[in-house]
Design a protein around this nucleic acid. Structure first.
Lengths: 124, 124, 124, 124
DNA sequence: GTGGTCTAGACCACC
DNA sequence: GTGGTCTAGACCACG
């Protein structure tokens, strides 16, 4: 069963996108694998304190991307293979790297400084 | 005059919030200072290719947070002091740095990989 | 035994309502009479290719309207009298005849065209 | 401006489908023409006593069928030609004729009797 | 219990 | 003012 323990909701982007992102990050991290069971709409929505429809929207989009398989009346499962995992990985890396770069640029940080910052603050 | 050269619009959060974020990041970076002049609503909206109302909304909120001073018919100026700057800084750190660290960690990215990513996507 | 030979499922309204409607039309037509036996939930659901729960829901509502009498473990029977039949008849007329007349009229169909339509689509 | 004066809401089929049907019937009847303006989401929803989203759903589907043209911030207009009108006409005729035939069959009426009924009750 | 759909209300960006 | 989207809650059909 996929865990949402580390999920931290944010108010600046749509909730359903955050759910999708959480799952995709789990795929990239290897903590979510082919065949894993997803929490039901009701369970997850109550866990996150949102409407079941919001969860459903996330699941539906993941199904359209062929990462999840849902059938009426039955549970939903991850449906992954190596190609899909790699596709998600590159999508996320690009997305997050661009976010970081963008925020650094707006803060007036040069590439060299950025690399130094990552290097210095990574530990913790 | 506040610069928007490094502004990169994103589709996952409301535009007016992105404009506010850009300015707050400039404050934290020190590139935006007390007394700096903001571009007029018309100029900025045309520069960013968005509706003037959207810029107006961002400016109005910044005014409500007392970071900007607008007077009817006159230009708008930043109105900062040490306290406000510190308030913005801590707000952004919670919003930003946490995001970066969490996303990389959740994906199981190593420090070396992070550095390579920055290096690869910085240009554009 | 009530017949469902002429039953034709439709996707634009809930199935349980269509089942109820089928039975009520039979009542109005006189083909379904007081004391007639209803097919069991299992038999009808398999005949119509739907879930037993859906049939159950239709029967339960008909019971609440006192048109059907069910007893646990026993068969279900129609329970009609003149008043009930008349109530169903007027309910259906409002629901049905009006629909037909209105739709044709709204489309500006002439009587001759209506007759041709019936003639053409009756077979199947 | 397209009129909804004769619109009569029904509880047995989804409202957005009833709205679509009303418009399609107007097209077939010739009372709705190419270039006609549709009431705005807010206006129509308040007129019908439903949620703006329900109206929007109807409009969106009509747009997907290329019968309506909508643009953000602007009004919505009918976009018809002879082919589309004919397509709608045959779709509706088949739909309504089948409904009539189905209900008659369920009431145990033969084709010959049906034709006689139409013939007799058409006047009014 | 499961997933799918319809209706509802608030907010966003645009003209 | 306009249309588009996100979140919400109730209901339907299914296992």
């Amino acid at each position: 069963m996929i865990s949402f323990d580390s999920f931290k909701m944010n108010d600046d982007s749509p909730i359903y996108l955050q759910i999708i992102l959480h799952i995709k990050r789990g795929i990239v991290a290897g903590s979510i694998c082919d065949g894993d069971e997803l929490p039901s709409r009701r369970v997850l929505s109550s866990l996150l304190g949102v409407n079941p429809n919001t969860v459903q929207k996330a699941y539906r989009i993941l199904e359209e991307e062929e990462l999840v398989l849902s059938r009426p009346g039955a549970k939903s499962y991850m449906q992954l293979d190596e190609d899909k995992t790699e596709r998600v990985r590159s999508e996320l890396l690009e997305n997050d790297a661009l976010y970081i770069i963008n925020s650094m640029r707006q803060m007036g940080i040069s590439k060299a400084e950025a690399l130094k910052l990552i290097d210095r603050f990574w530990e913790e």
